[in-house]
Computed example of a mutant assay.
Amino acid sequence: MSIPADDESFTRLVGGDADQDERTVEAALRPRTLAEFVGQERLREQLSLVLDAAKARGRSADHILLSGPPGLGKTTLAMIVAAEMGVPLRITSGPAIQHAGDLAAILSSVSEGDVLFFDEIHRMARPAEEMLYTAMEDFRVDVIVGKGPGATAIPLDLPHFTMVGATTRTGLLPGPLRDRFGFTGHLELYEPAELERVLVRSAGLLEVELRRDGSREIAGRSRGTPRIANRLLRRVRDFAEVRADSIISGAVARAALTVFAVDELGLDRLDRAVLTALCRNFAGGPVGLGTLAVAVGEERETVEEVAEPFLVRAGLLARTPRGRVATPAAWTHLGLAVPRDVAFGGGFGEPDLFSAADGP
């Protein structure tokens, strides 16, 4: 998909199952320039230097790898790179590239100076990944025509372009691919004060009156993630318009987030279901990930990739060689007494040497 680097690009790159109005609002909240982008000061400064130097030389910027948890702005930064360079943005994702031919088709349509954004680049198929090495380094790909002994490799020269890769799991990228990125930036979780700035900006765009205590309440439940902060703001806005005076105060935000089942730590239904299953069904663990997923009625990948990272960061869950365990803080957060004989399996606090899929 090719998107021009203008305002339209920020309304076309949206996803999910929300209706069109919701997706349009979400896109409208995206910053358009590095100056508008809130937080990540060091990364913004580094990225600004890379882009300004490339523009001064009249050349495409080096390939850029952006890593970090979901929802911190990797896609938005890719769009900003294209906008700052004044070039079109072409978008694809790792799961969509399963064969080398898929990648060759995309690369053959790239024009001089384009920015090619690869979301979830760590999920690209290995044959395509190996083709990408020469495309990024030598701006050339070899297209194989025919099969068997009669197959012929036809070299195809590519125009200079900038690859922007986004990944939530840098460790899954092979070394040769990481080495071909000229700049690597990691996005950190946001502090509450930074999220408040995000919310104030978004409230202005949404024309919502957001009081200081309201922004503080929402920021504290946003799990350090701007995407979640903006989503909660929209839901609190709905509550304020229907059940309050359209003004988002601290009390209104608390009432709204209670309705939408987001507690004071930012835990939602799935998070609490995982902790409740650990504490009530398995006496705090350890329990294997597969068994835990069955207990909460979710897929293993959903528990591992959606709920578990935040629960670990919040100190409510620990990953041990024997399985997942609930920490004393988890019992306390659920309003349960911490049993004296809570067993941490002898591995609490140890490195997660392997993933216990269906441990004891």
Rank of each mutant, 00 (worst) to 15 (best):
A125T: 04
D271A: 07
D21F: 11
G39Y: 10
R300D: 12
R227G: 02
D19L: 09
P286M: 03
V236C: 08
A256K: 06
R322L: 07
I64V: 15
T225Q: 13
G185T: 07
P226A: 01
L189R: 15
R235E: 10
D157E: 14
E196L: 03
G58M: 12
R324W: 11
R243P: 00
L316T: 13
K147Q: 11
L172F: 07
I247C: 13
S111N: 13
P309E: 00
A295V: 03
A253L: 10
G290H: 10
L103Q: 12
E241N: 04
V200K: 11
A151N: 04
L116T: 04
L29G: 03
S246T: 13
A295R: 12
R140W: 00
S109K: 12
R269Y: 06
F354K: 01
R280A: 15
D138H: 08
R169N: 12
G185I: 02
M1T: 11
V164G: 02
V312W: 04
D7F: 00
G15Y: 04
G204M: 06
S202R: 01
V236D: 05
I248W: 13
L72T: 12
F117Y: 12
L172S: 02
I228G: 00
I97G: 07
A330S: 04
V115A: 05
D238E: 14
E196D: 02
E264S: 11
V294C: 06
V294E: 15
E209H: 13
V259W: 11
S60R: 07
G148D: 00
N230W: 07
A329N: 09
G148V: 06
L116D: 05
P127I: 08
T332I: 15
R319Y: 07
L172H: 04
V252A: 01
A314F: 02
E196W: 01
V236Y: 12
E120N: 07
M163V: 15
I121S: 09
S109E: 15
D245M: 07
L187W: 06
I248C: 08
V287L: 02
V306T: 13
G165P: 06
G297S: 04
A135W: 03
P192Q: 09
L210M: 06
H122S: 10
E194P: 00
R126D: 09
S355C: 06
I80Y: 00
L29M: 05
S48R: 15
R201N: 09
E84R: 10
R32S: 00
E304S: 11
D7L: 03
F282W: 01
G68T: 03
A125H: 08
D52E: 14
F348H: 14
M163E: 01
A307N: 07
H122I: 08
A277Q: 09
R227I: 08
R169P: 03
A128I: 10
D138I: 11
R42L: 03
I154W: 14
G113T: 02
K55P: 02
R231N: 14
D21W: 07
V50S: 10
I91M: 14
D114M: 08
G297C: 08
P31M: 06
S108A: 11
G285W: 03
G266P: 04
L199A: 10
A83K: 15
H160W: 00
L265T: 03
R23G: 03
P4S: 14
E264L: 10
T92H: 01
R319G: 03
G345V: 08
R211P: 05
A240N: 09
E36I: 05
R123D: 01
I144Q: 01
D157V: 05
Q20G: 00
E188M: 01
R90T: 12
